[in-house]
Design a protein around this nucleic acid. Sequence first.
DNA 1: TCTCGTATTCAAAGCGGTTTGGAAGATTGT
DNA 2: ACAATCTTCCAAACCGCTTTGAATACGAGA
Lengths: 340, 340
Amino acid sequence: MNLKDLAKALELSQTTVSRALNGYPEVNEDTRKRVETMARKLGYAPNQQARRLATGRSMSIGHVIPRTLHEMMNPIFMEFIAGAGEAYSRLGYDMIISVVEDRQVEATYREIAAKKKADAVMVHGPRNNDKRHLLLKELGIPFLVHGRVPGAESSTSWIDVNNTRAFERATDLLLDLGHRRIAFLNGLENMDFAIRRRAGFERAFQNRGLAPDPSLMRQSEMTEPYGADCALEMLRTDKPPTAFLVSSMISAIGVSRAISLCGLEIGKDVSVITHDDALSFLPNSGEVPIFTCTRSSVRYAGRRAAELLIEKILPDPDTRIEEHLEAELIIGRSTGPRQR
Amino acid sequence: MNLKDLAKALELSQTTVSRALNGYPEVNEDTRKRVETMARKLGYAPNQQARRLATGRSMSIGHVIPRTLHEMMNPIFMEFIAGAGEAYSRLGYDMIISVVEDRQVEATYREIAAKKKADAVMVHGPRNNDKRHLLLKELGIPFLVHGRVPGAESSTSWIDVNNTRAFERATDLLLDLGHRRIAFLNGLENMDFAIRRRAGFERAFQNRGLAPDPSLMRQSEMTEPYGADCALEMLRTDKPPTAFLVSSMISAIGVSRAISLCGLEIGKDVSVITHDDALSFLPNSGEVPIFTCTRSSVRYAGRRAAELLIEKILPDPDTRIEEHLEAELIIGRSTGPRQR
DNA sequence: TCTCGTATTCAAAGCGGTTTGGAAGATTGT
DNA sequence: ACAATCTTCCAAACCGCTTTGAATACGAGA
């Protein structure tokens, strides 16, 4: 069942049928109704490939995931994808995901451009010396960055959590509670978001004329053992931290395991604040959440990002988008005044 | 830069150029070399949409994710996708992911079929009364099930972990260690994999003429709080379990938190075995892993599934595939002989 | 020398849509 | 009544590739 058949069945030209279905004005309202009815009756759906070829638009958005990124960040990433996916299917777009080796990222983008595989791409996990935005501009593919490319904030479209502010506020809270020896378990600091979080952490100290203890600051992939191992090691020194600021729920769970192992009580002997991406399988909710946290739904970010990106490709690809999401600071059971 | 331009530059017909690039035999080897060189020089890449239209193959695989599935299972699912994605990009296929509401699943499959969006689809998370395989057969889309559709094992292609056997072995181990009051925290038992795991658990008891205590058997989404809450509740009764068998690392982490909260020691006072999908952000490895587990890499499953599915659509769509993955039973620090 | 495979190449016909540039019929203005 | 203007519909071109069917050139066999 293709357009030709449908047109024949209706005794109309392909032109008219096509226009009727695509909502063009130069077709009689009665005809349109008739066409739509028949289309539904015969189960007609335009062949995606043909339409794409004819219109030149692929109606799909590309996501290129280098291995280093998907290797570890993946639960958070998945949540973002889930959000974006919702928006895409609502708006009639396809999401195409390419999981590739790091060194193939550039080739993959070039292929997307050359073969016209996608109308736009989403850029994930911007890093220190990220060059992807330059490549994409060269290739002329519209894109949106989830996060910010350092140094290119004002020349790219992006959506990002206000990481600096979130972590500054979290640190402020710990300082207000009397903590001074605050451990900071950050994500890998070649990632832009981690750099910003660190800046927030340090700024809070500076604002009070204090300085964080460098020996309590770590960075790594945000796994559970990372949290546990760091916390264990730190808690066993003679000058253990009285509080932890952690970049991810997953690592925070590790920290909390370590605290238990040391026979200490979380929220009493040791305070913990974590950044909570609102991962569905790690709900930190309830009346009083387990962890005090800076919370920002990454799924929402995904949904919003998808909407913005599609908006961007529609009328004028040159409009630049900046969207800041603020994280909430939510008090849970893992923080309390300094005891020792 | 399209085929026509390239042909003109070479002073050859489109036919010959196309054939040269696609490796057809009826083209002179010298000509082929010349064509390939020029193509590379001019940066030619065939337009994907046009090729798709002409060949009738979309060179992409669809994954339809209903909300209920992606809502919670998502870290495991993501890992599968990462594996599948690797294989797809290696084999030149695109992965298109549709995140939809449950009630739109059928419509989405129909759309994929009608619009020829994908050459095949992967079916995730088969359930009790799953009907998707019937729909897909009706639509004539090749598919592979990750897991098994109850009652349709012998009429569909699938790849699955031997869940029953894995959980039987795990239970055996606990029984061998003297445990009798074994709590079983399963996934939702409308999912096929959960049904099989339960069967394995029960069979191990039956084989010894024993029976599990139904009050210690639970099922739910496999979140962290699920594990913690169940364990807390059970450990506070007068007849607490001495061991836990848990369907997911994530819930196992919750269980372990509960055990600590009760002032007990994991692996000594209480034993825990979990199923470990080898999630990258929850590595349970090292010389002696934290958790004793039945381990089966879901990422590998994804990679393998993708390969099989593509194999299946290539020559003869009617060959049926069955592949069983065995889980390893790995001893970690979370199990020991019954104390009380 | 003539015929016949074989090796190469090509023109043109799809694939299934969208879009351009009319054309016919209906309506309006004078 | 007649030109001007809408309204509504259509034939044909086009998107960029693959593939069919045929043409050309060449060397081998009769």
